[in-house]
Amino acid sequence: MNLIDLKIGEQGVITTLNETLYGIERIKELGLTVGSKIKVVRFSPFNDPVLIEIRGYRLILRVKDAKKIGVRLFEKDLSNR
């Protein structure tokens, strides 16, 4: 499951960062580290890029990059189902 598979508003936890992700170091610096909580906020009118929420702030990512970020659903949301 990758970041784009999350529904809008759903919270996930980063599980993997694909090594082919260009600029992976920058991604980590910005706080997208394994184990941190992440949320998809909205898509642009052309469905790409995507706006995400991480560590209390918001970041724009392209869909192709977001697909390389593996996530699982955050437990709180799982228990609601």
Binding site: Y22, G23, I27, Y57, L59
Partner: peptide, 10 residues
């Protein structure tokens, strides 16, 4: 260039 990484703070 390979499109590089596009990240931007909102």
């Amino acid at each position: 260039h390979d499109d590089g990484l596009f990240v931007m703070e909102m």
